[in-house]
Amino acid sequence: MIEFDFSKEYILEDDIALVRPLQMEDLEYLVYVTSQPAVWKYSTLKADTPEDLKVYIEKALQARADGKEYPFIMFDKRTNQYAGSTRFYDIKLNQHNLSLGYTWYAEEHQGTGLNKHCKYLLFDFAFQQDFERVEFAADTANKKSIAAMKSLGCTEEGILRSHVIRLDGSRRDTIVLSMLRSEWEQTYKYELEHKIYATK
């Protein structure tokens, strides 16, 4: 039975990363990322100004209040700095499925290993809550994100053609990948633990 509760304040952490529920007050910690255009290159939601980021956070928090999404803020303990945001969305409690996305990191936190720590915490939490499937979706042009998901063990399932309208008005193809609870518990949890601690 799914134990996930939208009203609970879930805090996930290890020795490197802290992943906690996003709050409106977090705008001041994340606003510096709005000045980094590359962070928003593949985003379908505009958040590259302080005003737009405020709206972005407000909508994410409303989606949580509506029982649809659960947004997080991510913190790097090594640099003592908030690094970005991610969220569970398209949460289907009756089907034991959810999606993990809307993920972005400030440029200085990309390629530092923080993402692997955060993904480990989020995967492990989701599957401990008895979700059976975690899905990812990305712009097929976002090669870095796709490579990162595959490096975690996610399986490519297919391409949704002309699926989403980009901020520039063009249409994108979307790649869908997933991780199953059985795969995580039997193989990829331990492989990711090895990668995390081998690169510390």
Rank of each mutant, 00 (worst) to 15 (best):
Trp104Asn: 04
Glu157Lys: 12
Gln110Gly: 08
Lys116Phe: 05
Ala148Thr: 07
Ile159Phe: 13
Gly111Ser: 11
Glu156Tyr: 14
Asp130Trp: 01
Thr155Lys: 14
Gln110Pro: 03
Lys144Ala: 12
Ala126Asn: 04
Asp130Ser: 13
Glu157Ile: 09
Ile146Met: 05
Arg133Thr: 11
Glu135Pro: 02
Phe125Ile: 08
Glu108Lys: 08
Ile159Ala: 08
Val134Gly: 03
Glu157Gly: 10
His109Leu: 05
Ala106Lys: 03
Glu107Ser: 14
Thr112Ile: 07
Cys118Tyr: 02
Lys143Gln: 12
Arg161Cys: 08
His163Val: 08
Arg166Asn: 14
Lys116Met: 02
Glu107Arg: 06
Ala147Lys: 15
Glu132Asp: 09
Gln129Val: 05
Ala106Asn: 03
Phe131Ala: 00
Gly113Cys: 08
Thr140Arg: 11
Lys150Leu: 09
Asp139Met: 09
Glu107His: 04
Tyr105Met: 07
Asp130Ile: 03
Phe125His: 06
Glu108His: 11
Ile146Arg: 09
Ile165Tyr: 11
Glu132Leu: 11
Thr155Asp: 10
Glu135Cys: 06
Leu160Cys: 02
Ala106His: 00
Arg133Phe: 06
Gln128Leu: 14
Asn142Pro: 09
Cys118Pro: 01
His117Cys: 00
His163Met: 13
Arg161Lys: 12
Asn115Pro: 00
Thr140Gln: 15
Cys154Glu: 00
Glu107Gln: 15
Lys119Gln: 04
Trp104Ser: 03
His109Phe: 12
Tyr105Val: 01
Gly113Tyr: 01
Val134Trp: 00
Gly111Thr: 11
Val164Ala: 10
Ser162Val: 11
Lys119Gly: 02
Gly158Asp: 10
Glu157Tyr: 12
Gln128Trp: 09
Cys118Met: 05
Asn142Ser: 13
Arg166Trp: 07
Ala141Phe: 14
Ile165Arg: 15
Ile159Trp: 06
Phe131Leu: 06
Cys118Gln: 02
Asp130Val: 03
Ala137Ile: 13
Arg133Val: 08
Leu160Ala: 08
Gln129Cys: 08
Glu108Met: 06
Lys144Asn: 07
Ala106Cys: 14
Thr112Tyr: 05
Asn115Val: 01
Asn115Thr: 00
Glu132Asn: 14
Leu122Tyr: 05
Arg133Asn: 13
Phe136Thr: 00
Ser162Asp: 10
Asn142Trp: 12
Arg161Ile: 08
Tyr120Arg: 02
Glu107Leu: 15
Tyr120Ile: 04
Trp104Pro: 01
Lys150Ile: 13
Ser151Gln: 12
Phe125Gly: 07
Gln128Thr: 10
Gln128Pro: 05
Arg133Glu: 03
Glu157Trp: 11
Asn142Ile: 11
Cys118Lys: 00
Met149Leu: 14
Val164Asp: 05
Leu152Ser: 04
Glu135Leu: 12
Ala138Gly: 05
His117Phe: 01
Met149Ala: 09
Thr112Asn: 03
Ser162Met: 13
Ala147Glu: 13
Asn115Glu: 00
Ala126Leu: 12
Glu107Ala: 15
Cys118Arg: 01
Ala106Glu: 02
Ile146His: 03
